[in-house]
Design a protein around this nucleic acid. Structure first.
Lengths: 343, 343
DNA sequence: CCGCTCGGTGACAACGTTGTCCAGGGCCTA
DNA sequence: TAGGCCCTGGACAACGTTGTCACCGAGCGG
């Protein structure tokens, strides 16, 4: 039979609205709104009737409509690289906790280290009108965010600085950490030290390499081209790089691994070898204590927390100039970094 | 200078709207909508003018309004325990990928294993009108979701079944996995085997204990009360439980650890001990290969993927009866589970 | 040459909520 | 008892978008 409704059924599966609740409770629409929002000016008796109607109908306020009216979503967005990476999980969780403390919900998405996907995600979050945005950049040009920032979406970058725009950024001292780690190896007698890092497009990779070079230069040591390898963290690539450095007449006696993904693969590659090779890795790893892996630890949770706090400070009206906040790293000696050179 | 605006400025930081774009392009509102949504029926010339206006103003469609009108948010929610846990990170990521393939955004939140927080989160997501919900239950009573499900929010549970409502659930074969793991220890000669698991409120903990008991019974072995410990995965608690089982005249010679958190702590506790103790852990762990930890591996990503696929099948209209999907586990021998009893 | 179709376009209502304003009734005071 | 005030409750518009429908002019067949 003819469906005569002028507008097709696009109501949320026939969810009750405040209007329905009002009708059932025999009160006005606005009174329901008042009860739902805990506003003053409602008789206890009226309130009870409304509550009962809400209960009976299973009413739940539609936040989309609320957002549309109020202009604030009480949610923030986080664009990161990969939620499955043990470095980003804790970071995200820390952001979530801060958001929760401010009554906001966190929406996060993985860019998979793809600049286009980063942009797509960030803009999708802006379209949802998140109040603020935290971004771990995959790309190097963030001018696409300018209209959003101008429109009032607070934005903070973490782990890596923004490209071509001026914005808050919270990062670890990659340069200093790497420099200290490599200096540690040098202090234990190494002269030929390899560096395996992430893609040169990534800021932290470049900074850590810079730290490596600085430490070598500090000690007056030369750096052979064959000792340095930047590229993807794909295990095959890293294994190959490791093997290459350890081959030939003058192999490296120690390796500095540029991040947690690299460290894991290098450890696996070194394990079966006879000749011991010293190793210091950037990023701490679970169970590294038992495996005796010396690392430069950065605090992922602190990064997230700091960035989120800065974001909410902005959301609460602060308009300081964009700042660069750098967190210290810690060298944790556990054995692998204290192996003397063997050759 | 009385601010005479009747309605205060609650527009999103003065973001341009379709109306603004229309005015600038000299066209009607609906035409802008058509261009933005790529609908047919717009002259190339008109489209160009609109695109230019969009560009110039930095317009971005307001998804809240869109959602309000369309009734679909193209987003799904995921309530999990803790994003920082290496088990849930990959699970969440897998869900995200499936969502992305369906053009949906994923919003996830951590319940911190607190039933109240689980409910608060799930309902908050429903208030945002996510199209579907995936829940890793912390609580044991999910009747609070009934109105939501009735209202059309597709819901799938993962890792643990729903409490007191009938709904889809995707889980690993905890019972079978634990049984196989304990049988493996028995096959290597162990007779006194300890079990350390998560809180008895948690379904997987109970199932794995059941598997442990079944394996012991299969072999006709008694189970001493002192060999079984269920409780939080807090390291101190687990260390204590481990120490207790290893003390006394008849200590256990092997331990079955109920999940990844427990395994990590037990490994740390066993490492410094002289007398070797066999160990099999539920859940695989990064670097467990190097440490030679035998595990019952479950595929977190597959859990998430399967649940998400089921969810989207429902969103696309499937109305099969709620099903229980169980994924197999795999025993990966790496050494720690093959240590013979020492006594 | 008229009427009809058809493609492009815009006016308008509606989605569900909240802010503003007004009405009515009860109560207190003069 | 009249006047005024406060307190509760409701009518209405607006948030920014999309679906529906109507309009207009061009092209075409009769």
């Amino acid at each position: 039979m003819a469906e005569t409704a002028r507008h097709p059924a696009h109501r949320y599966g026939n969810r009750p609205t405040m209007k329905d609740v009002a009708a059932r409770a025999g009160v006005g629409l606005k009174t329901v709104s008042r009860v739902v929002n805990g506003e003053a000016g409602v008789t206890p008796d009226t309130e009870r009737r409304v509550q009962e109607a809400i209960e009976a109908l299973g009413f739940r306020r539609n936040d989309s409509a609320r957002v549309l009216r109020k202009g604030r979503t009480a949610s923030i967005g986080l664009v990161l690289e990969d939620l499955a990476d043990p470095f980003y999980g804790p970071l995200s969780r820390a952001v979530e906790e801060v958001a929760r403390a401010h009554g906001a919900l966190l929406i996060n998405g993985s860019s998979a280290e793809d600049p286009d996907r980063e942009q797509e995600l960030a803009l999708a979050l802006c379209a949802r009108r998140v109040d603020g945005l935290i971004v771990i950049p995959a790309g190097t040009d963030h001018r696409y965010l300018e209209p959003e920032i101008r429109a009032g979406i607070a934005t903070v970058f973490v782990d890596r600085p923004a490209g071509r725009i001026d914005a808050d950024v919270v990062l670890s001292d990659s340069f200093g950490g790497a420099r200290a780690g490599v200096a540690h190896l040098i202090a234990h007698g190494h002269r030929r030290i390899g560096f395996i890092g992430d893609q040169p497009r990534i800021h932290t990779a470049v900074e850590r390499l810079r730290g490596y070079r600085a430490a070598m230069e500090d000690a007056g040591l030369p750096v052979d081209d064959g000792w340095v390898s930047l590229g993807s963290t794909d295990p095959a690539r890293v294994r190959e790089a490791t093997a290459a450095m350890l081959a030939g007449p003058e192999p490296v006696t120690a390796i500095f691994a540029g991040n947690n993904r690299v460290t894991v693969t290098v450890v696996r590659e070194l394990a079966p070898r006879e000749r011991p090779v010293a190793l210091v890795g950037f990023d701490d790893i679970e169970l590294a204590d038992l495996l005796g892996i010396t690392v430069i630890a950065q605090d992922a949770a602190a990064l997230g927390r700091t960035a989120a706090e800065r974001l909410f400070r902005r959301l609460n009206g602060s308009d300081d100039a964009p700042a660069r906040i750098e967190l210290k790293t810690v060298l944790i000696p556990r054995g692998s970094g204290e192996i003397p050179p063997s050759s």
